[in-house]
Design a protein around this nucleic acid. Structure first.
Lengths: 128, 128
DNA sequence: TCTTGCCTTGGAGTCGACTCAAAGGTTTAT
DNA sequence: ATAAACCTTTGAGTCGACTCCAAGGCAAGA
């Protein structure tokens, strides 16, 4: 699967082609190889980076963070420790976000369950 | 605790006063009572709404959704079912987001663990 | 060959959600 | 009583992350 054009990648990941170009332009993913015509030609490595970027973005990680990671990556093995630190930092942030969302989920679940029990003839009260 | 001014509420929730005013202005929370001078005077009910709004925002729920919810709430008991539906909709979205973030967490954890094992003398490879 | 469709870039526009500034009224501590 | 620290509104500005547009090159089918 070494010859995906941007439209296929867009469809595969459900990410607009404009966004894929944007990520590359600002450096949130490394530059993608081109064919003779100058068209982007995504190989497995590019696909891996997009997988990474998409996951991170969905988890709320900023573009800036991705750029920082790629910047380190481009500098080679000397930055392994720095990249590791960056990932751990992200891991902490993501874990925290996870707990916040879990908390909200539980709260809304309670509210919804309460509606469930009282949805008919219930006299409205705050947060019900 | 029925006489909190905006600064105290801001401190309690760690949400800027400007943001509290913004939420109220656009209708993401109901109007807050005022004292004689026109100052906002947050009571327990207001605090509950801010708790709700903050949780929802942290879970990635849009301001627009909150406005929709408040709009229904203001229309009284006739909208109980609609509000219940809205909450269930949000619940689904939040659950989905939760799984996405969990997925990313696992992915990053793997990457980080891998770094842990190879951080010295490891030859860089994609996503490492 | 022509047309339709996908690709390119550069730059401008949009959108959600704040965030700040200006001008002015109130409260509180000294 | 006066300064410092609050509060108010209106409206404009910012920021992150896209998203769209124009102008033009390449490709694949009829």
């Amino acid at each position: 699967m070494g010859i995906m054009k941007i439209k296929e990648v867009s469809a595969k990941f459900n990410v607009p082609a404009d966004t894929l170009r944007y990520w590359e332009r600002v450096g949130a993913i490394p530059p993608v190889n081109r064919n003779a015509a100058g068209y982007r030609d995504y190989d497995d490595e590019d696909i891996d980076w997009i997988t990474f970027a998409k996951c991170m973005r969905e988890a709320g990680v900023s573009i800036e963070y991705l750029i920082e990671y790629i910047t380190l990556f481009k500098q080679g093995d000397a930055t392994l420790q720095a990249r590791k630190d960056l990932l751990h930092e992200q891991l902490d942030t993501i874990a925290q976000r996870l707990h916040e969302i879990q908390h909200t989920y539980d709260l809304i679940k309670d509210k919804a369950d309460h509606y469930e029990a009282h949805v008919e003839g219930y006299r409205g009260k705050l947060l019900q």
